[in-house]
């Protein structure tokens, strides 16, 4: 083998680089987020699996319908009416953003910019 003094270190750096997540986590997968579920209700807007996967699309659909088409309609969950709204629906039931929305979002490294404008009362 020629130039092994350069090629072997190069290869080692490459392998360490590709396997970086293994060294970074050093065998510890960390805790899976457990969002604190609301006590005031039993059901969400949609079935729970669908909420987990698609809640961001639901929110944008609401936003478009409310703001662009002016359809400030109410939805009914377990007979109770809720406004189609980020603050007046989601955060009515999921009143603790930090222990609900943020647990998942921190884990998955998503940082919704909604809170630049929308207000979430932060509980201590």
């Amino acid at each position: 083998m020629y130039d092994s003094g350069k090629i072997i270190p190069g290869l080692i750096i490459f392998v360490l680089f590709v396997t970086f997540p293994v060294w970074y986590n050093h065998g510890d997968a960390g805790a899976v987020p457990k969002p604190e579920l609301p006590k005031v209700a039993k059901k969400c807007v949609l079935p729970v699996a669908q909420m987990r996967d698609e809640h961001m699309q639901l929110l944008l659909d609401w936003r478009a319908e409310v703001l662009r088409q002016g359809e400030w309609g109410f939805i009914k969950i377990d007979g109770k009416p809720f406004q189609r709204s980020l603050q007046n629906a989601c955060l009515k039931c999921h009143s603790n953003k930090k222990k609900f929305c943020d647990t998942c979002h921190t884990y998955a490294a998503v940082n919704p910019y909604c809170w630049d404008c929308h207000f979430a009362r932060v509980k201590k």
């Binding site: 986590n25 065998g27 997968a29 960390g30 899976v32 699996a49 996967d53 698609e54 998942c104 998955a108």
Partner: peptide, 25 residues
């Protein structure tokens, strides 16, 4: 097609793969 794309479960699998304890949640 977000249905079934649960990033929390997927991340659990992906982190599991690189910590050598993979789980399909």
């Amino acid at each position: 097609f977000r249905s079934g794309v649960d990033i929390i479960n997927i991340k659990q699998l992906a982190v599991g793969l690189v910590t050598l304890h993979p789980v399909i949640a």
